[in-house]
Design a protein around this nucleic acid. Structure first.
Length: 324
RNA sequence: GGGUGCGUCGCAUAGUGGCAAUUGCUCGAGGCUGUAAACCUCGCGUCCUAAAGGACUACGCAGGUUCGAGUCCUGCCGCACCCA
């Protein structure tokens, strides 16, 4: 669906940069973009939101105070988000009260790919949200059934066993393959089955020519960097940022969904845990998060793992020179 | 000095005399079709076994009562609190 012209039906090249949080993905992406004439597509489920800057490690947050960012950009246009002179797409454009899903991300990122390559540039996808990257790269074709809040609310009250029964009746095939004890999955499946009669199977293939680069620094290097980053979060004002969100009318429940950093800050402001404890908690959770990320990518055998960003230059230049 | 309470698998917690011992967190492994930093599953004393299962070692320490003790009794050690 990306091809608008059969003569151009060569596979679009894509560079994808993955790696645990605080491994230097953003900086590497920018470096590659500058060297190889690229633009960046962020793949981060939280950096899409405006106002989540410090807690998500959003690049712009490095110099903009949160307030200015919130007012400038419009939701509709993929207005240029520049960092070190490089345009970044799919970042900082959704109001925090709205929710933005994988499927929406995928559509927007596909647009960005088209846009970037139409200008003769190479798209570089960088981010920490593995599922979003896979959805985009492997063209996971999510059924066109938007979330149905009232149905969900009703289903959420039911037991897991009951949910499974409902799904078995609606779509026995999907009921067999689904995670049978995962209420979230069950509810979504029922939602789809209600709308379409059944849950369509999803295929996994990639329309792109992809260079996967995995940034995996040594534990010492990484943990040092990560701790510095978490420390900086506090000094740069994640607590104030959280309060600002609340002040804008974002519910606490919603702030909870913004990840462990914000959850920890809420606990800090509510229960008055010490700042030291807050710092330690975010560090500990960062380690856990990084492990989960790695667990996902470990399975992807296409990834070229590197420990230093220099190694990426070689990989990319070979990739770009290689024929289709 | 007197009194009371408490010491359980990294931390926290449950445990009517029949328990390798509850639950939460951490930790480890795995999973994932529109919340994905989310959500779900499994494991977590040691050893043998493909498995069912078995053997051993365990609830501060030392004894005791009992067919059987984390659970009852005595002493000791440690911690907490109260009265002096």
């Amino acid at each position: 669906m990306l091809r608008n012209n059969p003569a151009e039906a060569r596979r679009q090249k894509l560079i994808v940069i993955v790696g645990p949080t605080a491994s230097g993905k953003s900086e590497l992406a920018v470096r590659l973009a500058r060297k190889f004439n690229g633009e960046i597509i962020s793949a981060d489920s939280r950096q899409v939101y405006r106002g989540l800057d410090i807690g998500t490690g959003k690049i712009s947050g490095k110099w903009h105070p949160p307030i200015t960012i919130i007012s400038i950009r419009s939701y509709q246009n993929d207005s240029k988000f520049l960092y070190k002179g490089i345009p970044h797409h799919c970042i900082d454009f959704v109001p925090p009260k709205k929710t933005f899903s994988v499927a929406e991300y995928k559509a927007r990122a596909e647009n960005a790919i088209r846009d970037i390559s139409s200008r003769g540039k190479i798209p570089i996808i960088a981010g920490g949200t593995a599922f979003w990257i896979d959805a985009l790269v492997y063209d996971l074709d999510f059924p066109d059934v938007p979330p149905n809040p009232s149905l969900r609310k009703k289903l959420e009250k039911k037991s897991i066993a009951k949910l499974l029964k409902i799904l078995q009746k609606a779509d026995p095939k999907r009921a067999r393959t689904i995670e049978q004890k995962n209420p979230r999955r069950l509810i979504r499946a029922i939602e789809i089955a209600r709308a379409l009669g059944k849950v369509p199977a999803i295929t996994r293939h990639t329309p792109y020519r992809v260079l996967w680069i995995g940034l995996n620094p040594s534990y010492e290097t990484w943990s040092h960097k990560m701790k510095r980053r978490v420390g900086a979060m506090l000094t740069r004002g994640i607590i104030l940022e959280t309060k600002m969100l609340i002040r804008q009318g974002v519910s606490k429940k919603r702030v909870h969904e913004f990840g462990f950093e914000y959850r920890a800050v809420l606990d800090y402001t509510d229960k008055k845990m010490t700042k030291e404890a807050l710092l330690e908690r975010i560090i500990r959770e960062s380690i856990r998060y990084a492990r989960r990320q790695m667990a996902w990518w470990k399975r992807n055998k296409e990834i070229w793992w590197i420990s230093k960003s220099n190694e990426a230059i070689q990989l990319v230049s070979e990739f770009l020179q290689s024929p289709l």
